[in-house]
């Protein structure tokens, strides 16, 4: 069904190597509510793929399925050619998928630096015994982890905030911190869930710049965003969800003019919006 809808653009990216992430006819039911219905989607290496849709369309649900926080009712999700359905979130992170959260998920009481250190958790091995005995390996790993974390903080421009409690940061920087924490995982694919929500124009510009430069360094991004100009400016391809179904997919210019997309968003203002909430 979605096959006919999907518009394969003549992208500049090399698509010979196969998709990084492939979602195959995935459905998710919450009791009687179908949050996703037979959604198929591909994310190619090196691209920024936009995922848009009205409130309640199922975007966050799709992220939760990809990261293993929820299990699809049916369908398959493949990362680098291998099915990841049924794996735990921590295993999926280890494979190279990191995410941010629509409602910022910080570790209360921990500093900015510590957030990024936790992000790099999987790059060290020392456990409880290493910590108690302060083994040389643990100390070396700790130094390496600190160095990596500082490099990431500098990279995203949060170094001067390193020792501040994360919850004391303005929202714009909290969202950047979530990206920094995800970066520390060392992922091939980043899932960003409305990173621009609640940010002022200046913060949004900074965010867009960061995403663009990460992508330029080779990071593949799947971006959920309500701010049309932000997502249109960043993504090289956009998929549109509405009521759990993929209604359009293609380059930003095509999506902007797609009558189904316009209809979905027009409806959001009035009765459809109510229906989605109720």
């Amino acid at each position: 069904m979605t096959k006919t809808l999907s518009i394969r653009p003549d992208g500049t990216k090399d698509r010979a190597e196969g998709p990084l992430l492939e979602i195959r006819r995935v459905s998710k039911a919450f009791g009687g509510l179908m949050a996703l219905m037979g959604v198929s989607l591909r994310v190619w290496p090196g691209q920024i793929k936009g995922l848009i849709g009205p409130n309640g369309a199922g975007k966050t649900t799709l992220f939760n399925l990809i990261t293993g926080m929820l299990r699809p009712t049916s369908g398959d999700i493949r990362f680098q050619g291998r099915s990841i359905v049924g794996l735990s979130p921590f295993q999926i992170a280890a494979l190279g998928i990191a995410r941010t959260f629509q409602n910022v998920q910080l570790f209360r009481g921990m500093t900015v630096l510590e957030h990024v250190l936790v992000g790099g958790h999987r790059h060290s091995r020392s456990g409880l015994l290493g910590a108690i005995l302060r083994t040389p390996r643990m100390q070396r790993e700790e130094e390496e982890a600190q160095a990596r974390a500082w490099a990431i903080l500098k990279r995203v421009g949060l170094a001067e905030w390193a020792d501040r409690p994360a919850e004391s940061l303005p929202l714009g920087l909290q969202r950047i911190l979530e990206i920094a924490r995800a970066l520390a995982v060392g992922p091939q694919l980043m899932l960003l869930d409305e990173p621009g929500a609640g940010l002022n124009p200046m913060e949004k510009a900074r965010l867009a710049e960061l995403i663009r430069s990460l992508n330029a360094e080779g990071m593949t991004v799947l971006l959920v965003e309500h701010d049309m100009s932000l997502v249109m400016g960043l993504a090289d391809e956009i998929a549109v969800l509405d009521y759990g179904q993929l209604i359009a997919e293609g380059p930003p210019e095509a999506i902007r003019q797609d009558p189904r997309v316009i209809a979905a968003y027009l409806g959001e203002e009035d009765e459809v919006g109510h229906a989605a909430r109720g």
Binding site: Q105, L106, V118
Partner: peptide, 22 residues
Amino acid sequence: SRVGRALRAIHGSEMAAESVGV
């Protein structure tokens, strides 16, 4: 230590901790 940070992260948000591989 790394373990202590992981524990505090779990306290803060299990979801986020798990999402980075804890």
